[in-house]
Design a protein around this nucleic acid. Sequence first.
RNA 1: GACCCCUUCGUCCAGAGGCCUAGGACACCGGCCUUUCACGCCGGCGACACGGGUUCGAAUCCCGUAGGGGUCACCA
Length: 500
Amino acid sequence: MTGQGSPAPDSSPSTAGAPRVRIAPSPTGDPHVGTAYIGLFNYVFARKHGGKFILRIEDTDRKRSTKSSEEAILAALRWLGLEWDEGPDVGGPHGPYRQSERLDLYKRHVQQLLDAGLAYRCFCTPERLADLRKQQEAAKASRYGYDRHCRDLDPAESLRRAEAGEPYVVRLKMPLTGTCVIEDGLRGSINREYGESDDQVLQKSDGFPTYHLANVVDDHEMGITHVIRGEEWISSTPKHIVLYEAFGWEAPRFFHLGLLRNPNGSKLSKRKNPVSVDYYRELGFLPESMLNYLGTMGFSISGDRDRFTLDEMIEAFDWSRVSAGGPVFDPVKLRAFNKQDLMAMDLDELQRRFVESVLRPDRLRLLLAQAQKRVDLLDEVLPWGAYFFGGGVDYKAIEKKFRIKGRTRKETIKALSAYLEAIERDERARAFTAAGLEAFTEEFVESIGWNKKFYQLLRVATTGQAKTPGLFETMELVGKDRARQRIRDAVAHMKAGENW
RNA sequence: GACCCCUUCGUCCAGAGGCCUAGGACACCGGCCUUUCACGCCGGCGACACGGGUUCGAAUCCCGUAGGGGUCACCA
C-alpha cells in the first residue's frame, strides 16, 4: 500500500561516523551464492563509506550447524575477495563472532525482558503447537501462528513451573495493536500491523536463542548501523523493531534486497540450480567474474555498461542505483562474463590461474594415482581422465546403462534422487572422501532396498562412463559439486528419456 | 488463505514527466572477416502486465486489477 514509486533512497548513515555492516551466515550447509550476493552489497557499502564489514556466524541451530560448513563459508567468501574486518577467525573488538560462544549474553538479555514483563515463558508442548496449527489450517484461519496461550500466565506461577523443571521457551510480547512502520532504505516505508505478528520465540527450550533475539542483541552489541539483508526478512522486521524498543536501543537502518531467483521465479534453490559457491569455484569460474555478475543483480553502474570491477562498484555504489526486484540468477550470462575475463587476461596470468585451479597439486595427485595403472604414456593422462574435468557429460550414448534390470525407470530415478538428498544430511558424504562415500553409500543402498547395481548407476551418472577406476575414488576425484550436478543432470536425462 | 514486497525485451539492467520512433549486456538469428573454430565487426529479432485517472504531455506520478515472489517454525 505504500513504498511504491520513489522509495526515497538514502545512502547516508543514520548514525554519525563510519557505518558498520555485517554478513551473518548460518553454517548449515554449503556456501550459498545468495550469501555471497548479500555479502557483496554489504562489503561494497562498507568500503564505499570507509566503514567496517563484519562476519558473524549464526550457529544458534545446534542440530544443523557444523564446523565444516562454517569453514567452507569462510573459505568461499575469502575466495571471492570479500575480506572482513572482524570475524571469528580474525577477531575484533566485539567478539566472539560466533553466536554459540555468546550464550551468556543472550541469557542475560532474555532475563532482562522477562523481568520487565516484555517477554514471557511459554510451556506449550510441541504437540499442542502442532495441534493448534492443524486446527488453524482446517479452519482456514486468516491468521496462523501462536495463540498467545501462555502470555498472561501469572509471573510467580511461571517462575515456579520453570524452577520445577518444566520445559519452556521464552516468547516476545508483541503489541496487540498499532502499526509498525519500517523505514527501508531501499523501499521506503513499509507498514505492518503489530497484531499480525505472533509472539516470536526468543529462547528455545534448549536455552539457545533464536535468530531473532541473537541477531538483535549482536547487531546492537557489535555496533551495526545498517542491516543489509534479503527480502525474506521483511516480515519479521517488526519483531526486531519491538526488540530494539524493548531494550531501549536505537534500531539500525534496514535495507532489504530482492532475492536471487530460479529461472521459474522462485527463490534460488539447489533443486533447480547449483547454488554452492564451491561449485562455481570448482568448475573454474573466476571470482572477479562472479562478483561482477552478482553485482549486476539489482545494481547497475550505468545505463550502458555491466562489466566492472569490485573497486569500480564501490566507487559508483549508491542506493539509488539499486533496485528491489528479485533477479533471476542466469548461469549463461555468468559464463559469458567469465569467458570475456579469460580473453582479457594476458597469457602469463591465464596460465597461472589455470594451473592454480584446474591443475591443483592435490587434485592432480588423485588423478595420477588412478591414471598410473591405466595409461601407457604421460600424454594420455588428460584425455584418459577427461571426465574428471568440466561440468556436464553427454549421457546420450550411454543412456542404456540407466536401465537397471528388475527396476522400473521410476524406481531408478527415485533412488538416484534420494541419494542426492541423503548426501546433504550425512557428514561422511558431505566430506566426499572415497572412504566416507563408500561407508555412506553402502548404508544408503541397503536402506532403500537396492543392491550393488546402484553402484554402476552412480558411476554412469557421475562420469558418463561405464568403465572407471573404483567408484568412490572416482567420485572423490570428480568432486562433490561436480558429482552432484551430474547426478542431477542424469536424473533429468532419465526423466526426459522416452521409450524405456 | 492472511499479510508484505515486486512488476521495462527470454534473462540482467538503463530510464527518476517531454531528450523514448524506449538504450546497453547475455542469449538467439543473419552477414562480413577467415583454410576451420574462436575472436572481432555490422545488422536483426525482442519489452514499458492490464484498466482507470492526474497532466498540454506518462515507461516515469496516483488508484484499481492481474501476475510473480516472500513470510506465516523451539531454521536462519
